[in-house]
Design a protein around this nucleic acid. Structure first.
Lengths: 335, 335
DNA sequence: GGGCATAATGAAACCGATTTCATAAAATTA
DNA sequence: TAATTTTATGAAATCGGTTTCATTATGCCC
């Protein structure tokens, strides 16, 4: 016999009444409610959440896809999402996509197979890229972080090009004219967007943009370390490095230090994200504050209202960024 | 009409046959299988995973509870778990418990309410602490990382005391006799365990263990930074700092640097975990390699076999650790 | 070709809740 | 007090699959 029936028998009521006792107690008379609750406690009854979800057509779970769980920036967004998930009594499903489109497809499929009500994509591909054909309106989708343009679904992003431009301008204002770029993963739109901003600043300053001043790598310490090695070997004359993430920047500083350079005297380095590292590394890192956790919160908030069907037009938010000047940058010596 | 019925009608077979086509195609004749598959494609049919889980009594999802998603060490374990989850076609549910016992309880409840088949606890409390009474055998439970003693359920851990002891011995061998401790969160068993190892080394060396040489803090950069400030103000004579995590150590180095100390000449600092940052910070950090990702993989592997009912006695693994000597430590100057 | 094992398929029960609709009881109003 | 509305409860259908059991079709062996 099913648990709810067992409880209903012990309490001397119908299963429907037991159901109501848990989903909407106000519908029951005080006496009945008490009887049911007593019986439930006695049998240690907990409503089967899966059965409820099945019957109710809503799983109350949301899938978050991140390209790499170990990367702090994604972890921060995830933490933001998690908070709002918990606040709204949702369940959080997580997938590490390894930036693999097949895995992203499998993620979207979880909505079609009723495992999740919606998908929050953190970085990674756009919905259109994942599902070139097929009915995209069927999957409640929110895109956060590393998004470069608003779409038909809600998005939370920052203005990457503008942030990159202002950081580059800051370096230019310090007197640097030979600024290398540690450009992250080459064909990722967020990389291109930031490089676009860099270029705007360079050209706006009357300098020529040179492709060879850019070196690409993974968004990691090791990536930055290796890319910096390549770049500094090729262009020992660079006086500043504009790096597309804090990790890349810190990896680059490691390389510079290992080459005997003194920081920031011989080389100014800037990061992007303002992860916790940047406040404690040596020298502390000048970087762009990207409100990652906040973006996660907003993404999930958007998802909640999307699932409630409250959305008229897709909501797009572009959050402000901020430059924090720390000790990894200084005025170029004009000796 | 339910989707499966729609498909069965179009294919001219019974729903049972459609079900078999997806769950065990070998049971069907080639002709029938083809008919069903064709109809399914035409209707874009995907079996409702929730209905399947409901009927089948297994959700194929596992809940991972971590005390803080933003902490890299937990993120690494999570990433390890995720890999094995994906390999075995499970779904990964994640909760950030904020080290809150009520949230941990809610996590366990997800098994009782059929949301998850089992729970992997990363760090945090033991099952007994979370559920002092109640039938603990009902919740398939695996405990990973920051576990200090085997239990009635599978566990993956390292020998924290031994690792701490060998790190402390290393500092002693370098000639340090005034070694401070940045001791993490005071009443957490993993902190106590590591401090126990420190004490063993100190006393084994014939020195006296002094409580005042320990300062506690959160396992974070900021925590280490502040704790180091307190400790160094109180004990300016310390020549080495044994820190219970890389983040604490790097926070401490920041403080030391800010106080004008030169590292490692004036102060040797050691970490614990070997997170990616320790390879690139300045100076690079001497630390204990804790195979966090591997622990996550093992934990999930244990969970899989637990859920398969393969486990005779609970499996316990204690993984080896390793000291990596980098540049944050050096021989004490005896001048 | 008859007898028997095996393979292929369908009918119907089932998983555990929710929800609609009907009905009985209680409360309100005239 | 009768009529009417409101509240409390139960019976039964339902969500979308899986699985057991029975039945029919097929293959194999002598």
């Amino acid at each position: 016999m099913s648990p709810i029936k067992r409880v209903s028998k012990l309490a001397g009521v119908s299963p429907a009444t037991v159901s109501r006792a848990f989903s909407d107690p106000s519908k029951l008379s005080a006496g009945t409610l008490e009887k049911v609750l007593r019986a439930a406690t006695q049998l240690n009854y907990k409503p089967n959440s899966l059965a409820k979800a099945f019957r109710g057509k809503s799983t109350r779970s949301v899938l978050v896809m991140v390209p790499d769980l170990r990367n702090v920036i994604f972890a921060k967004v995830l933490a933001g999402v998690e908070r709002i998930v918990a606040e709204n009594d949702y369940f959080l499903l997580v997938m590490d996509t390894r930036d693999d489109i097949e895995i992203e497809r499998a993620g979207l499929e979880m909505v079609q197979t009723n495992r999740a009500d919606g998908v929050i994509q953190v970085g990674g591909r756009t919905l259109k890229e994942i599902m070139p054909d097929g009915d995209r309106t069927l999957v409640p989708f929110v895109h956060a972080l590393d998004v470069v343009a608003p779409a038909k679904y809600p998005t939370v992003m920052i203005d990457n090009a503008a942030a990159a431009e202002s950081m580059t301008s800051y370096l230019l204002a310090l007197g640097h004219t030979r600024i290398g770029v540690l450009g992250g993963i080459r064909n990722r739109s967020v990389s291109q967007e930031r490089i676009k901003g860099y270029r705007r600043a360079i050209e706006g300053y009357g300098l020529k943009y040179e492709d060879s001043a850019t070196e690409h790598s993974a968004y990691s310490f090791a990536g930055g370390q290796r890319a910096a090695l390549r770049l500094l070997s090729r262009h020992p004359d660079l006086t500043a490095l504009f790096c597309l993430s804090d990790e890349i920047a810190i990896g680059a500083m490691r390389t510079a230090l290992d080459r005997g350079l003194s920081l920031p005297d011989d080389l100014s380095v800037t990061g992007f994200d303002d992860t916790a590292f940047s406040k404690v590394c040596q020298p502390t890192l000048t970087t762009v504050v990207q409100p990652a956790e906040r973006m996660g919160e907003i993404a999930m908030t958007m998802m909640v209202s999307l699932l409630r069907g409250e959305t008229a037009a897709p909501n797009h938010q572009c959050l402000p960024t901020e430059l924090v000047i720390r000790s990894s940058t200084r005025r170029h010596r004009t000796t």
